[in-house]
């Protein structure tokens, strides 16, 4: 039960809105954080918390791409394939990952570590090609970077190649790569 574990956080979320249903997406995020995807039990619990019917929760979940109804890999690699990234070679990036991990978009590695998705624009067109892995963005991808990111994730679960606060081009006084 989410309420047992996150009672306080749930109360805080509910306190932000004058109408309960507004807390739906925030609570779904909580559920997804807990299990990697939104389970049926979580949907029912959230429905009860917000005085909604389970179908009302379900219809909302299915509308949004960030919310998963099925388990995904530990690292969900989402490569932007929209035009702007495509102009900078995002199809190639997908190709690299395909060869390195042996998975096509929509597939997961057998060990459940990686899932690859091709997604639409993530607001990084200036630093294309890019991908998002779980919460983090990785930009201006090159084959070497992809290689390193995959390695880092496997070994440490994170990678220092992930982007910080966005700015491009960088302030002039600072030279070099970010």
């Amino acid at each position: 039960m989410l309420t047992d574990k996150y009672g306080k956080e749930i109360d805080e979320i509910l306190s932000r809105y004058p109408v309960k249903r507004s807390a739906l997406i925030p609570l779904l995020y909580l559920a997804q954080r807990e299990q990697g995807y939104v389970t049926e039990a979580a949907m029912k619990e959230i429905a009860q918390l917000l005085k909604l019917t389970p179908p009302q929760v379900y219809e909302t979940v299915t509308f949004y791409t960030v919310l998963n109804l099925k388990p995904v890999g530990k690292f969900h690699m989402q490569v932007c394939k929209s035009l702007m990234c495509a102009l900078a070679g995002s199809d190639t990036v997908i190709g690299w990952i395909k060869t390195k991990l042996g998975i096509a978009p929509g597939e997961s590695t057998p060990d459940g570590l990686f899932t690859l998705s091709a997604v639409e624009c993530l607001a990084s067109c200036g630093t294309a090609p890019m991908m998002q892995i779980n919460d983090d963005y990785y930009e201006q991808l090159t084959e070497q970077k992809v290689e390193k990111i995959l390695g880092d994730l496997r070994t440490t679960g994170t990678s220092d190649l992930k982007s910080g606060p966005y700015m491009w081009p960088l302030p002039v006084a600072v030279k070099g790569e970010k």
Partner: peptide, 26 residues
Amino acid sequence: WVHRGAGAYICGEETALLESLEGKRG
């Protein structure tokens, strides 16, 4: 308050945004 959307371009359209903020489909 910061309210995170959940992946739907249409929620940039102002009334879809409001629907989404109300916890509904955008």
